[in-house]
Amino acid sequence: MRPLEIAILIVGSRGDVQPIVAIARHMQRKYNHRIRVATHVDFRNLVIEGGLDFYPLGGDPKILVQCHVHIAEYLNVPFHLISAIPWTPTSEILHPCLRIKGLDNKMTYKLVDVFMWLSSGSLLNKLRKDQLKLDPLPLLSSFIDSNVSATYTWNWGENVDVTGFCFLDQAHDFKPPLGLLSWLESGQPPIHIGFGSLDPERTTEIIIEALKLTGQRGIISKGWAGLGGESTEFPDHIYVLDEIPHDWLFPRCSGVINHGGVGTVAASLRAGCPTAVVHACSDQELWGEIVHSNGAGPAPIHISQISLQTMVQSILYLIKPEVYFQVKERAIQLSEWLQQESAIEAAVRSIHKHLDKSFKTNDYSLQNNPSMLGVGQTLARKINQL
């Protein structure tokens, strides 16, 4: 395919941004596309260090996520949506954002469409009519049409491709703080702990006490929740840090307790770490359940259930001899699967294929030519196949 000028809009956390940056870097370096990434200012350096153009993203992320496809239609350019969770109806699983057991799996996707339409449909039609001069969408239109070409896990038909999780490798160029290196070398591999919290100060106290009771060393990741607070004094068996490349840190850990974001779960399993999930929303719970059902960690718990007892139980599940070797073996199996994938190249081939279709038909309307790429889904598929 000839070199193109491509704009990529990324909304979310580091786990959402990193895999897309990995795809963008590959597209630019191997295929000479010029890529501009529009995302949050916190990730400016991540984008620029990859040799990509950066544009700061402003406005309400929720509105931006829903508007970009309509703006692409207005500009008459091809549109490709990259997602780590399924939006196209499937009988395989419940919609990750409406995980009510007992409902028909496919029906949950329709219900999510209805909820999204009721909350944003009139706003989007106003945008299309008043600002973009496009025809309004019909009442209760699907936000992701079933004919959208996609890259997902399960077999949705000819419009759907499968890649795998796209990792941004940062360990090679990372220079860790000397204090962290010294601490890691001073004892047994630690458990990495980082997840959201309704009460960061109380949660930090629980983590410290749980590590003490279980006799474990721990690394606490501050994250957006601010775990660890502003204090600089912690027991010797605990190290508190800000952002750090997971592909450098996790191989040096004995286990990982995280929020269940698909990027963090994938990085933990790729490192062969037993993994526990403390989730805040339903798509995070999905990944936690997949990990647990395949023996690589305990059942996920909600952040509202965090207590000294549940934290101790999660840590013990990852380390106690009677289950550790089984859990570690499963994590290593999943690591081997993930490391065999050529997901980035598969993702780029998928993008090129759908863009080529768009150029041949010269039709970029929302109804006829949007496309969709899911970069996290092979993780779920392959775990389910083991």
Score class of each variant (00 low, 15 high):
Asn155Ser: 14
Ser197Lys: 12
Glu73Ala: 01
Leu308Trp: 07
Ile144His: 14
Glu205Cys: 01
His172Lys: 09
Ile220Thr: 09
His40Tyr: 01
Asn76Glu: 14
Lys126Ser: 09
Ile71Thr: 05
Ser365Ile: 01
His237Asp: 10
Gln305Lys: 15
Pro96Val: 12
Ala225Ser: 11
Tyr74Asp: 03
Ser293Glu: 15
Met372Trp: 10
Ser186Phe: 01
Gly12Gln: 00
Leu211Arg: 06
Glu185Gly: 03
Phe359Gln: 01
Val327Asn: 07
Ile63Lys: 05
Asp356Cys: 07
Val277Lys: 06
Arg99Asp: 02
Ser149Cys: 12
Gln131Met: 15
His172Arg: 01
Ile208Thr: 11
Gly297Val: 08
Lys328Thr: 04
Asp60Cys: 03
Gly223Lys: 08
Thr88Pro: 02
Leu269His: 03
Phe359Thr: 00
Gly15Cys: 06
Gln66Cys: 06
Pro176Thr: 10
Val41Phe: 12
Lys320Trp: 06
Gln284Asn: 04
Asn76Gln: 14
Ala276Asp: 04
Ala296Gly: 10
Asp145His: 10
Leu9Thr: 02
Ile303Phe: 13
Trp287Arg: 03
Asp42His: 12
Ile306Val: 15
Pro370Trp: 10
Gly228Thr: 06
Ser314Glu: 03
Ser91Ile: 10
Pro177Cys: 00
Gln305Thr: 14
Ile20Tyr: 00
Val277Ser: 05
Leu386Thr: 11
Thr39Pro: 04
Arg99Glu: 04
Tyr55Ala: 11
Ala380Gly: 13
Gln28Asp: 05
Glu201Asn: 04
Leu184Asn: 01
Ser146His: 09
Glu243Met: 13
Val11Asp: 00
Leu111Lys: 03
His80Pro: 04
Leu181Glu: 12
Gln326Val: 05
Ser342Tyr: 07
Asp113Asn: 07
Glu329Gly: 07
Arg270Ala: 09
Pro298Ala: 11
Glu322Ile: 11
Lys320Glu: 11
Asp16Gln: 00
Leu103Asp: 05
Arg14Cys: 02
Ala346Phe: 08
Ser221Tyr: 13
Ser358Arg: 06
Cys273Thr: 04
Ile63Pro: 00
Trp248Pro: 09
Arg29Val: 05
Ser307Lys: 07
Pro298Phe: 11
Thr203Ser: 07
Pro300Trp: 07
Glu329Asp: 07
Asn105Tyr: 11
His40Met: 02
Gly12Phe: 01
Ala331Val: 08
Gly288Trp: 02
Asp247Gly: 08
Leu180Phe: 00
Phe325Ile: 02
